[in-house]
Design a protein around this nucleic acid. Structure first.
Length: 424
DNA sequence: TCTGGGGTCCTAGGACCC
DNA sequence: TCTGGGGTCCTAGGACCC
Protein backbone atom coordinates (compact mmCIF):
# COMPACT_ATOMS: atom_id res chain seq x y z
CA UNK A 1 0.00 0.00 0.00
CA UNK A 2 1.38 3.32 -0.99
CA UNK A 3 1.47 6.09 1.51
CA UNK A 4 0.21 9.47 0.46
CA UNK A 5 -0.08 12.49 2.68
CA UNK A 6 -1.35 15.98 2.08
CA UNK A 7 -0.28 18.85 4.26
CA UNK A 8 -2.82 21.63 4.26
CA UNK A 9 -1.44 24.85 5.69
CA UNK A 10 -3.34 28.10 6.13
CA UNK A 11 -1.61 31.02 4.45
CA UNK A 12 -0.46 33.68 6.94
CA UNK A 13 -3.14 32.31 9.23
CA UNK A 14 -3.58 34.98 11.91
CA UNK A 15 -3.41 37.80 9.37
CA UNK A 16 -5.92 35.95 7.18
CA UNK A 17 -8.32 35.58 10.14
CA UNK A 18 -8.28 39.33 10.70
CA UNK A 19 -9.03 39.86 7.03
CA UNK A 20 -12.04 37.57 6.94
CA UNK A 21 -13.99 40.01 9.07
CA UNK A 22 -12.58 43.19 7.57
CA UNK A 23 -12.22 42.81 3.81
CA UNK A 24 -10.93 46.36 3.51
CA UNK A 25 -7.65 44.84 4.69
CA UNK A 26 -7.33 42.77 1.51
CA UNK A 27 -4.18 43.59 -0.45
CA UNK A 28 -2.91 45.69 2.45
CA UNK A 29 0.06 44.87 4.70
CA UNK A 30 -1.31 43.27 7.88
CA UNK A 31 0.69 42.10 10.90
CA UNK A 32 -0.40 40.34 14.07
CA UNK A 33 1.50 40.98 17.30
CA UNK A 34 2.54 38.68 20.14
CA UNK A 35 1.11 39.00 23.64
CA UNK A 36 1.66 42.47 25.09
CA UNK A 37 1.99 43.75 21.52
CA UNK A 38 5.67 42.91 21.79
CA UNK A 39 6.71 41.68 18.39
CA UNK A 40 5.40 40.50 15.03
CA UNK A 41 4.25 36.88 14.90
CA UNK A 42 2.29 36.82 11.63
CA UNK A 43 2.49 38.83 8.42
CA UNK A 44 0.44 39.07 5.26
CA UNK A 45 2.37 38.73 1.99
CA UNK A 46 2.28 42.51 1.55
CA UNK A 47 3.89 42.96 4.96
CA UNK A 48 6.58 40.43 4.03
CA UNK A 49 7.29 42.41 0.85
CA UNK A 50 7.83 45.52 2.97
CA UNK A 51 10.66 43.64 4.67
CA UNK A 52 8.95 43.22 8.05
CA UNK A 53 10.65 40.25 9.69
CA UNK A 54 9.14 37.56 11.86
CA UNK A 55 9.78 38.48 15.48
CA UNK A 56 10.49 42.12 14.70
CA UNK A 57 9.83 44.30 17.77
CA UNK A 58 6.69 46.34 17.30
CA UNK A 59 8.28 49.68 18.17
CA UNK A 60 10.37 49.43 15.02
CA UNK A 61 7.31 49.56 12.83
CA UNK A 62 5.10 51.74 14.95
CA UNK A 63 5.65 54.64 12.55
CA UNK A 64 4.37 52.51 9.65
CA UNK A 65 1.24 51.71 11.64
CA UNK A 66 0.64 55.32 12.60
CA UNK A 67 0.94 56.44 8.98
CA UNK A 68 -1.45 53.62 7.96
CA UNK A 69 1.09 51.91 5.75
CA UNK A 70 0.74 48.79 7.89
CA UNK A 71 -2.31 47.49 9.81
CA UNK A 72 -1.42 45.90 13.15
CA UNK A 73 -3.54 43.67 15.41
CA UNK A 74 -3.00 42.35 18.92
CA UNK A 75 -3.32 38.57 18.88
CA UNK A 76 -6.84 37.28 19.39
CA UNK A 77 -6.50 33.56 20.06
CA UNK A 78 -10.20 33.11 20.71
CA UNK A 79 -10.90 34.21 17.15
CA UNK A 80 -8.03 32.21 15.63
CA UNK A 81 -8.97 29.07 17.56
CA UNK A 82 -12.52 29.22 16.35
CA UNK A 83 -11.50 29.88 12.73
CA UNK A 84 -9.07 26.97 12.99
CA UNK A 85 -11.93 24.66 14.04
CA UNK A 86 -13.93 25.74 11.02
CA UNK A 87 -11.04 25.01 8.66
CA UNK A 88 -10.41 21.59 10.25
CA UNK A 89 -14.11 20.71 10.08
CA UNK A 90 -14.15 21.56 6.41
CA UNK A 91 -11.04 19.50 5.72
CA UNK A 92 -12.52 16.48 7.47
CA UNK A 93 -15.09 16.27 4.68
CA UNK A 94 -12.35 15.27 2.26
CA UNK A 95 -10.83 12.29 4.06
CA UNK A 96 -11.79 10.09 6.99
CA UNK A 97 -8.22 10.27 8.32
CA UNK A 98 -6.81 13.61 9.34
CA UNK A 99 -4.36 14.88 11.94
CA UNK A 100 -4.68 18.41 13.24
CA UNK A 101 -1.02 19.20 13.55
CA UNK A 102 -1.20 22.80 14.76
CA UNK A 103 -3.62 25.69 14.84
CA UNK A 104 -3.05 26.29 11.13
CA UNK A 105 -1.86 22.94 9.73
CA UNK A 106 -3.50 19.61 9.07
CA UNK A 107 -2.16 16.38 7.59
CA UNK A 108 -4.63 14.41 5.48
CA UNK A 109 -4.13 10.74 4.71
CA UNK A 110 -4.84 10.33 1.01
CA UNK A 111 -3.51 6.77 0.85
CA UNK A 112 -6.74 5.42 -0.55
CA UNK A 113 -7.06 8.22 -3.11
CA UNK A 114 -4.25 7.08 -5.43
CA UNK A 115 -6.61 6.35 -8.25
CA UNK A 116 -8.02 9.85 -8.53
CA UNK A 117 -6.47 12.97 -9.99
CA UNK A 118 -4.74 14.35 -6.89
CA UNK A 119 -4.13 17.75 -8.39
CA UNK A 120 -7.81 18.27 -9.12
CA UNK A 121 -8.78 16.98 -5.69
CA UNK A 122 -6.33 19.31 -3.95
CA UNK A 123 -7.77 22.25 -5.83
CA UNK A 124 -11.24 21.20 -4.80
CA UNK A 125 -10.10 21.21 -1.15
CA UNK A 126 -8.45 24.59 -1.48
CA UNK A 127 -11.48 26.13 -3.16
CA UNK A 128 -13.92 24.71 -0.62
CA UNK A 129 -11.96 25.88 2.43
CA UNK A 130 -11.73 29.39 1.01
CA UNK A 131 -15.40 29.48 0.15
CA UNK A 132 -16.65 28.08 3.47
CA UNK A 133 -14.27 29.80 5.88
CA UNK A 134 -12.65 32.68 4.01
CA UNK A 135 -9.19 31.31 4.80
CA UNK A 136 -6.73 30.74 1.91
CA UNK A 137 -4.73 27.50 2.22
CA UNK A 138 -1.91 25.72 0.41
CA UNK A 139 -1.56 22.00 -0.16
CA UNK A 140 1.47 19.81 -0.64
CA UNK A 141 1.01 16.13 -1.44
CA UNK A 142 3.74 13.47 -1.23
CA UNK A 143 4.50 9.92 -0.04
CA UNK A 144 5.76 10.99 3.40
CA UNK A 145 4.84 13.72 5.84
CA UNK A 146 8.25 15.35 5.57
CA UNK A 147 8.02 15.40 1.76
CA UNK A 148 4.49 16.79 2.04
CA UNK A 149 6.02 19.63 4.08
CA UNK A 150 8.59 20.17 1.32
CA UNK A 151 5.81 20.18 -1.28
CA UNK A 152 3.72 22.59 0.74
CA UNK A 153 6.55 25.07 1.06
CA UNK A 154 7.14 25.05 -2.69
CA UNK A 155 3.40 25.23 -3.37
CA UNK A 156 3.39 28.54 -1.52
CA UNK A 157 6.59 29.85 -3.09
CA UNK A 158 6.12 28.93 -6.70
CA UNK A 159 3.95 31.18 -8.87
CA UNK A 160 3.30 28.27 -11.19
CA UNK A 161 2.12 25.96 -8.40
CA UNK A 162 -0.10 28.72 -7.03
CA UNK A 163 -0.78 26.93 -3.77
CA UNK A 164 -0.98 23.28 -4.81
CA UNK A 165 1.92 20.90 -5.47
CA UNK A 166 1.79 17.14 -5.91
CA UNK A 167 5.12 15.30 -5.54
CA UNK A 168 4.76 11.69 -6.56
CA UNK A 169 7.26 11.14 -9.38
CA UNK A 170 10.86 10.52 -8.29
CA UNK A 171 12.21 13.16 -10.67
CA UNK A 172 9.84 15.77 -9.28
CA UNK A 173 10.80 14.82 -5.74
CA UNK A 174 14.49 15.19 -6.54
CA UNK A 175 13.93 18.61 -8.10
CA UNK A 176 11.94 19.71 -5.08
CA UNK A 177 14.70 18.56 -2.71
CA UNK A 178 17.30 20.43 -4.75
CA UNK A 179 15.18 23.56 -4.50
CA UNK A 180 14.83 23.30 -0.71
CA UNK A 181 17.53 24.92 1.41
CA UNK A 182 18.60 22.71 4.29
CA UNK A 183 17.40 25.08 7.00
CA UNK A 184 13.88 24.97 5.55
CA UNK A 185 13.55 21.22 6.07
CA UNK A 186 11.08 20.20 8.80
CA UNK A 187 13.22 18.91 11.67
CA UNK A 188 16.38 20.84 10.81
CA UNK A 189 16.76 23.71 13.24
CA UNK A 190 19.45 26.33 13.48
CA UNK A 191 21.99 24.13 15.22
CA UNK A 192 21.83 21.24 12.78
CA UNK A 193 21.73 23.61 9.81
CA UNK A 194 24.99 25.22 10.89
CA UNK A 195 26.57 21.86 11.69
CA UNK A 196 25.65 20.41 8.30
CA UNK A 197 26.55 23.49 6.28
CA UNK A 198 30.05 23.31 7.67
CA UNK A 199 30.16 19.89 6.05
CA UNK A 200 28.96 21.26 2.70
CA UNK A 201 25.41 20.03 3.00
CA UNK A 202 23.32 22.90 1.69
CA UNK A 203 20.07 21.50 0.34
CA UNK A 204 17.55 18.85 1.29
CA UNK A 205 18.92 16.88 -1.67
CA UNK A 206 22.50 17.01 -0.32
CA UNK A 207 21.18 15.75 3.00
CA UNK A 208 19.26 12.90 1.40
CA UNK A 209 22.56 11.62 -0.04
CA UNK A 210 24.32 11.25 3.33
CA UNK A 211 24.88 7.79 4.76
CA UNK A 212 22.46 6.42 7.31
CA UNK A 213 25.17 5.54 9.81
CA UNK A 214 26.73 9.00 9.69
CA UNK A 215 23.39 10.71 10.15
CA UNK A 216 22.44 8.45 13.04
CA UNK A 217 25.78 9.00 14.71
CA UNK A 218 25.58 12.80 14.54
CA UNK A 219 21.84 13.45 14.65
CA UNK A 220 20.40 10.54 16.64
CA UNK A 221 17.50 8.41 15.49
CA UNK A 222 15.51 11.58 14.86
CA UNK A 223 17.91 12.57 12.08
CA UNK A 224 17.85 9.07 10.67
CA UNK A 225 14.07 9.14 10.48
CA UNK A 226 14.23 12.47 8.70
CA UNK A 227 16.70 11.03 6.17
CA UNK A 228 14.41 8.12 5.39
CA UNK A 229 11.38 10.35 5.11
CA UNK A 230 13.15 12.54 2.56
CA UNK A 231 14.04 9.41 0.59
CA UNK A 232 10.37 8.53 0.44
CA UNK A 233 10.22 5.93 3.19
CA UNK A 234 7.34 6.84 5.49
CA UNK A 235 8.43 6.69 9.16
CA UNK A 236 5.98 9.18 10.65
CA UNK A 237 2.43 7.99 10.93
CA UNK A 238 -0.72 10.01 10.97
CA UNK A 239 -1.71 10.74 14.57
CA UNK A 240 -5.44 11.12 14.36
CA UNK A 241 -6.16 11.19 18.07
CA UNK A 242 -4.23 13.82 19.95
CA UNK A 243 -2.55 12.18 22.94
CA UNK A 244 -3.14 13.87 26.30
CA UNK A 245 -0.45 16.35 27.19
CA UNK A 246 2.18 15.32 29.73
CA UNK A 247 2.73 18.81 31.02
CA UNK A 248 0.60 21.91 30.79
CA UNK A 249 1.99 25.38 31.23
CA UNK A 250 0.28 28.75 31.44
CA UNK A 251 2.55 31.74 31.73
CA UNK A 252 2.53 35.32 30.55
CA UNK A 253 4.65 38.39 30.71
CA UNK A 254 2.69 41.12 32.42
CA UNK A 255 1.49 44.20 30.59
CA UNK A 256 3.65 46.18 32.99
CA UNK A 257 6.01 45.08 35.71
CA UNK A 258 4.51 44.58 39.17
CA UNK A 259 6.07 44.54 42.63
CA UNK A 260 3.29 43.67 45.07
CA UNK A 261 2.47 40.20 46.28
CA UNK A 262 -1.23 40.81 45.62
CA UNK A 263 -0.77 41.54 41.94
CA UNK A 264 1.51 38.56 41.51
CA UNK A 265 -0.98 36.40 43.34
CA UNK A 266 -3.89 37.46 41.12
CA UNK A 267 -1.94 36.72 37.97
CA UNK A 268 -0.66 33.39 39.26
CA UNK A 269 -4.12 32.32 40.45
CA UNK A 270 -5.52 33.17 37.02
CA UNK A 271 -2.85 31.03 35.33
CA UNK A 272 -3.56 28.17 37.74
CA UNK A 273 -7.25 28.36 36.81
CA UNK A 274 -6.33 28.23 33.09
CA UNK A 275 -4.21 25.13 33.71
CA UNK A 276 -7.18 23.58 35.51
CA UNK A 277 -9.42 24.32 32.54
CA UNK A 278 -6.91 22.79 30.13
CA UNK A 279 -6.72 19.69 32.32
CA UNK A 280 -10.51 19.33 32.37
CA UNK A 281 -10.64 19.69 28.58
CA UNK A 282 -8.51 16.59 28.19
CA UNK A 283 -10.20 14.79 31.10
CA UNK A 284 -7.12 14.56 33.24
CA UNK A 285 -5.77 15.61 36.61
CA UNK A 286 -2.28 16.64 37.71
CA UNK A 287 -0.23 15.59 40.74
CA UNK A 288 2.51 18.20 40.57
CA UNK A 289 2.20 21.94 40.40
CA UNK A 290 5.08 24.33 39.77
CA UNK A 291 4.99 28.10 40.07
CA UNK A 292 7.78 30.29 38.76
CA UNK A 293 8.35 34.02 38.89
CA UNK A 294 10.93 36.11 37.11
CA UNK A 295 12.01 39.72 36.77
CA UNK A 296 12.65 41.27 33.36
CA UNK A 297 15.88 39.72 32.17
CA UNK A 298 16.17 42.33 29.40
CA UNK A 299 16.26 45.16 31.87
CA UNK A 300 19.78 46.08 32.92
CA UNK A 301 18.64 48.47 35.65
CA UNK A 302 16.35 46.11 37.55
CA UNK A 303 17.75 43.72 40.16
CA UNK A 304 17.24 40.21 38.83
CA UNK A 305 15.41 37.33 40.50
CA UNK A 306 14.16 33.98 39.29
CA UNK A 307 12.73 31.22 41.40
CA UNK A 308 10.38 28.30 41.17
CA UNK A 309 8.66 25.96 43.58
CA UNK A 310 7.09 22.59 42.91
CA UNK A 311 4.43 21.11 45.15
CA UNK A 312 3.28 17.49 45.15
CA UNK A 313 -0.44 17.55 45.78
CA UNK A 314 -1.96 14.79 47.91
CA UNK A 315 -4.44 13.78 45.21
CA UNK A 316 -4.24 14.61 41.52
CA UNK A 317 -6.75 17.32 40.70
CA UNK A 318 -8.16 19.55 38.00
CA UNK A 319 -10.17 21.84 40.25
CA UNK A 320 -9.64 25.60 39.99
CA UNK A 321 -10.04 25.89 43.74
CA UNK A 322 -7.40 23.33 44.64
CA UNK A 323 -4.87 24.36 42.03
CA UNK A 324 -5.20 28.00 43.05
CA UNK A 325 -4.72 27.01 46.68
CA UNK A 326 -1.45 25.20 45.97
CA UNK A 327 -0.31 27.88 43.55
CA UNK A 328 -0.72 30.37 46.39
CA UNK A 329 1.37 28.24 48.74
CA UNK A 330 4.10 27.89 46.13
CA UNK A 331 4.07 31.59 45.36
CA UNK A 332 4.35 32.49 49.05
CA UNK A 333 7.43 30.30 49.27
CA UNK A 334 9.27 32.10 46.49
CA UNK A 335 7.98 35.67 46.63
CA UNK A 336 10.57 38.21 47.73
CA UNK A 337 9.93 41.84 48.43
CA UNK A 338 11.76 44.51 46.52
CA UNK A 339 11.79 43.19 42.97
CA UNK A 340 9.97 44.27 39.83
CA UNK A 341 8.37 41.11 38.49
CA UNK A 342 7.71 40.75 34.78
CA UNK A 343 6.37 37.27 34.41
CA UNK A 344 4.98 34.35 36.32
CA UNK A 345 3.72 30.96 35.30
CA UNK A 346 2.08 27.76 36.45
CA UNK A 347 3.08 24.32 35.20
CA UNK A 348 1.13 21.18 36.05
CA UNK A 349 2.65 17.74 35.46
CA UNK A 350 2.42 14.07 36.42
CA UNK A 351 -0.86 14.03 34.60
CA UNK A 352 -3.28 11.13 35.03
CA UNK A 353 -6.62 10.29 33.46
CA UNK A 354 -9.51 11.68 35.49
CA UNK A 355 -11.22 8.31 35.83
CA UNK A 356 -8.35 6.35 37.37
CA UNK A 357 -7.18 8.57 40.19
CA UNK A 358 -5.14 7.33 43.10
CA UNK A 359 -7.29 8.49 45.96
CA UNK A 360 -5.98 9.20 49.42
CA UNK A 361 -7.47 7.88 52.63
CA UNK A 362 -6.88 11.21 54.28
CA UNK A 363 -8.61 13.12 51.52
CA UNK A 364 -10.90 15.74 53.00
CA UNK A 365 -12.16 17.21 49.77
CA UNK A 366 -15.57 16.46 48.32
CA UNK A 367 -14.38 15.78 44.78
CA UNK A 368 -17.81 15.16 43.38
CA UNK A 369 -18.95 18.57 44.53
CA UNK A 370 -15.88 20.24 43.09
CA UNK A 371 -16.46 18.46 39.80
CA UNK A 372 -20.03 19.68 39.57
CA UNK A 373 -19.00 23.22 40.35
CA UNK A 374 -16.31 23.14 37.71
CA UNK A 375 -18.73 21.86 35.08
CA UNK A 376 -21.01 24.81 35.78
CA UNK A 377 -18.06 27.16 35.64
CA UNK A 378 -16.93 25.77 32.28
CA UNK A 379 -20.42 26.11 30.89
CA UNK A 380 -20.54 29.78 31.87
CA UNK A 381 -17.06 30.40 30.46
CA UNK A 382 -18.11 28.85 27.16
CA UNK A 383 -21.15 31.09 26.96
CA UNK A 384 -19.87 34.36 28.31
CA UNK A 385 -16.12 34.21 27.91
CA UNK A 386 -13.19 32.91 29.91
CA UNK A 387 -12.88 34.31 33.43
CA UNK A 388 -16.47 35.58 33.66
CA UNK A 389 -16.77 33.72 36.96
CA UNK A 390 -13.65 33.43 39.09
CA UNK A 391 -12.41 32.92 42.59
CA UNK A 392 -11.69 35.96 44.71
CA UNK A 393 -7.96 35.32 44.52
CA UNK A 394 -7.99 35.89 40.78
CA UNK A 395 -9.06 39.41 41.58
CA UNK A 396 -10.14 42.39 39.57
CA UNK A 397 -6.95 44.35 39.40
CA UNK A 398 -5.57 44.89 35.97
CA UNK A 399 -2.09 45.94 36.94
CA UNK A 400 -0.63 42.79 35.43
CA UNK A 401 -3.03 42.27 32.52
CA UNK A 402 -1.70 41.87 29.02
CA UNK A 403 -1.21 44.91 26.92
CA UNK A 404 -3.47 44.48 23.93
CA UNK A 405 -4.13 47.81 22.30
CA UNK A 406 -5.11 46.65 18.82
CA UNK A 407 -7.38 43.71 19.43
CA UNK A 408 -10.15 42.90 16.99
CA UNK A 409 -13.55 41.73 18.32
CA UNK A 410 -14.15 38.00 18.90
CA UNK A 411 -16.52 38.05 15.96
CA UNK A 412 -17.30 34.35 15.97
CA UNK A 413 -17.64 33.52 19.66
CA UNK A 414 -19.10 36.44 21.62
CA UNK A 415 -22.52 37.85 21.18
CA UNK A 416 -21.55 41.44 21.88
CA UNK A 417 -18.72 41.24 19.38
CA UNK A 418 -20.97 39.69 16.79
CA UNK A 419 -23.22 42.71 17.07
CA UNK A 420 -20.22 44.95 16.54
CA UNK A 421 -19.51 43.00 13.39
CA UNK A 422 -23.00 43.60 12.05
CA UNK A 423 -22.81 47.31 12.73
CA UNK A 424 -19.55 47.53 10.84
C1' DT B 1 10.16 52.17 26.59
C1' DC B 2 9.15 48.01 23.68
C1' DT B 3 11.96 42.13 22.54
C1' DG B 4 5.75 35.53 22.90
C1' DG B 5 4.02 31.25 24.72
C1' DG B 6 3.42 26.36 24.76
C1' DG B 7 4.82 22.00 23.60
C1' DT B 8 7.58 17.16 22.16
C1' DC B 9 11.24 13.80 21.84
C1' DC B 10 15.90 12.00 22.58
C1' DT B 11 20.30 11.14 24.97
C1' DA B 12 23.73 10.88 28.51
C1' DG B 13 24.87 10.01 32.95
C1' DG B 14 24.08 8.89 37.74
C1' DA B 15 21.77 6.06 41.23
C1' DC B 16 20.31 1.85 42.34
C1' DC B 17 19.17 -3.14 41.97
C1' DC B 18 20.16 -8.17 41.33
C1' DT C 1 44.30 -9.17 44.06
C1' DC C 2 41.38 -9.61 40.53
C1' DT C 3 37.20 -6.81 39.45
C1' DG C 4 30.59 -8.52 35.73
C1' DG C 5 26.93 -7.54 33.32
C1' DG C 6 22.56 -6.48 32.83
C1' DG C 7 18.53 -3.83 33.84
C1' DT C 8 15.43 0.32 35.35
C1' DC C 9 14.39 4.87 36.68
C1' DC C 10 15.18 9.63 36.99
C1' DT C 11 16.93 14.13 35.64
C1' DA C 12 19.10 17.69 33.06
C1' DG C 13 19.98 19.46 28.91
C1' DG C 14 19.77 19.78 23.95
C1' DA C 15 17.29 19.97 19.79
C1' DC C 16 13.26 20.73 17.44
C1' DC C 17 8.24 22.32 16.31
C1' DC C 18 4.29 25.99 15.62
Amino acid sequence: MTHLYALCDCNNFYASCERVFDPSLNNKPVVVLSNNDGCVIARSNEAKVLGIAMGEPFFKLRHLVESKQVYAFSSNYTLYGDMSNRVMQTLSRFTPHAEVYSIDECFLDLGSFCHIDLHTYAWEIKRTVLQWTGIPVSLGIAPTKTLAKVANRLAKKSKKANGVLVLTHPQHIQKALEATPLQDVWGIGRRYARFLQQRHVHTAYDFSKLSESWVKQHMTVVGLRLLKELRGEACLELEEVASPKKGICTSRSFGKRVNTFDDLQEATATYAARCARKLRRQNSCARLLTVFVTTNKFSENDRQYYNSKTIAMPVATNSDIELIHYANLALKAIYRDGYWYKKSGVIVSEIEPEYQLQLSLLDTIDREKHGKLMRVLDGLSDRFGQGIIRTATQGLSNAWQLKSDFKSPCYTTQLADLQTAYIR
